[in-house]
């Protein structure tokens, strides 16, 4: 049973998060260890295992990157490992510029405006990649899936930039 089936959902990228969430809650209401607090240790163990599996599945499906990765995996396309370098030189150059943009925030005269602008830039660019990604997934063939996997790798770079941006924001507020 794959994770989509576990929640009674179609294996589609654009799933309804509310539906996922309510299926998740219905399942946890059945298997959660709290339902087995006065059961035998065997049932308790089984419940912990099932509950953990459902948590894992929910966590994976609710985030776009891991959900996309999982769909590609179900289609037989694995993402190249992180160590393997991305060949797209233009993209890597852009990434370096974006890193510099984040690094410059704390020196900006208007820090709030710089934070806001940086967030906007990351959002617009990653949104663009997501659209391409969804488009590619609509037709399940090997070539498309490989392209989609490549896009997902790029989106992981944006995810890292997002984390970096939040770290910068935290540091600015904590001072």
């Amino acid at each position: 049973m794959n994770y989509f089936e576990l929640f009674g959902l179609e294996a589609e990228f654009s799933l309804d998060l509310n539906e996922l969430s309510s299926a998740y809650q219905a399942l946890q209401k059945t298997v959660h260890p709290d339902r087995f607090a006065h059961s035998s240790s065997q049932e308790q163990l089984l419940s912990v295992q099932k509950s953990a599996e459902i948590n894992d599945a929910f966590n994976l499906l609710k985030q776009p990157i891991t959900r996309g990765e999982y769909i590609l995996k179900l289609r037989g396309t694995e993402l190249a490992s992180e160590q393997q370098t991305l060949q797209d030189v233009d993209f890597l150059m852009e990434q370096m510029e974006l890193h510099e943009m984040l690094g410059d925030i704390k020196h900006a005269s208007d820090v709030d405006a710089a934070l806001f602008a940086a967030q906007e830039t990351l959002d617009v660019q990653s949104q663009h990649l997501w659209q391409q990604f969804e488009q590619l997934l609509t037709d399940d063939n090997q070539q498309n899936n490989h392209k989609a996997a490549e896009l997902l790798r790029k989106l992981k770079f944006y995810k890292k930039l997002q984390i970096e941006l939040e770290r910068i924001e935290d540091a600015l507020f904590d001072d």
Binding site: F7, A26, L27, T30, V31, S40, E43, L46
Partner: peptide, 24 residues
Amino acid sequence: DKITAAFAERRMDASIRTALAGHS
């Protein structure tokens, strides 16, 4: 425990199916 292990699993899976059915 050993002799009921498979039964316990089947029950858990059945309850998951029931939960999803009730949910849909």
